[in-house]
Amino acid sequence: MPDLPPQSPADPSGPPTFWGRLTAWSLYRALTGLVFASPRRQFWMLILFPVIWVLVAHLGPILQMMQVSFLSSYPPSAGKEVVLTTANYSRFFGDSIFLVPFWRTMVFSVVLTLTTLVLMYPVAYFLARHVRRDNQLLFLMLLLIPFWVGEIVRIYAVMIILGNNGALNLLLRWLGLIERPIPFMYTNFSLSVGIVYLTALYMLMPLYSALEKIPANYSEAAADLGAGPWTRFFRVTLPLSLEGVGAGCTLVFLIATGMYATPVLLGGPNTTLFSQTIAGFFHVAGDQWPTGAAFSTIMLVTALVVAGAFNRIIALLSGRVAK
């Protein structure tokens, strides 16, 4: 072959493009030459930023919170000596004012997670199995629209339904079932309705995507082998959807434990949750931050342990199915 002029990417035929001009620019060439000199250096340049980001922005706040939880006073003020102490933690175990909301939060979150699971499973099953493919998106969108609306707006919508002059009381009175309005608001009931209202979709989506993946002919094969509808569900469909159950329950549980506006607006004096207790330490003036940090740490560790244990059980269960 006669020697052809080398094809340069910086010099394409036709008018120079933006990329052509950029890559021909000497400063750009010098910089990229430096950065992309070897695959090793490329890798380091690529990974440096993510590592710094996750350490500083993701891990930093949590570690800092844990550190502050062991201090005797924070924010620093003049004339106060700061020492390391575990007093903030022992304060939690010594007082039922703190223990009761803590246990209430945990029990509430677990119960509501399971309630949401039982309520959402049929909905997800219906969507994945009984709605035609073309219509599934439409049916999902109908449920997704309220989900996009923020927490506060949705809490307000629940308040309008459950108030003394709300839609539910009006309906019950109109039906002649009650004489005077039932005070639904500021009780465990209104709080539960609100939390289920806010978290239901976080359960529905993982369940739906797990159920949608199961081929329909599995259940047909089971039917051919003589399995009744209940056997088919408990031996085929349910075990195969366990992954979605695990993901949905984890999400709902962690969201429910971390809710703050919902118990403030929908709950009453008898339904104080631990998030309100924690927030209280940051509202009042004074030296309460370390206690708040210690309580947050306790709650974070407990929530993650519960979620982790639950996922472990799910993994064991689906492992047994696989064998």
């Binding site: 930093g60 706040p61 949590i62 919170m65 971390g258 809710m259 703050y260 924690i278 709650m299 974070l300």
Partner: peptide, 23 residues
């Protein structure tokens, strides 16, 4: 790194807010 990347998604809301407040 993947685990740390996903960390903020599993931290309950109020705790993440307070951790940021302190940080």
């Amino acid at each position: 790194i993947l685990g740390l990347t996903l960390l903020p998604a599993v931290i309950p809301g109020v705790i993440s807010a307070i951790a940021f407040r302190i940080y």
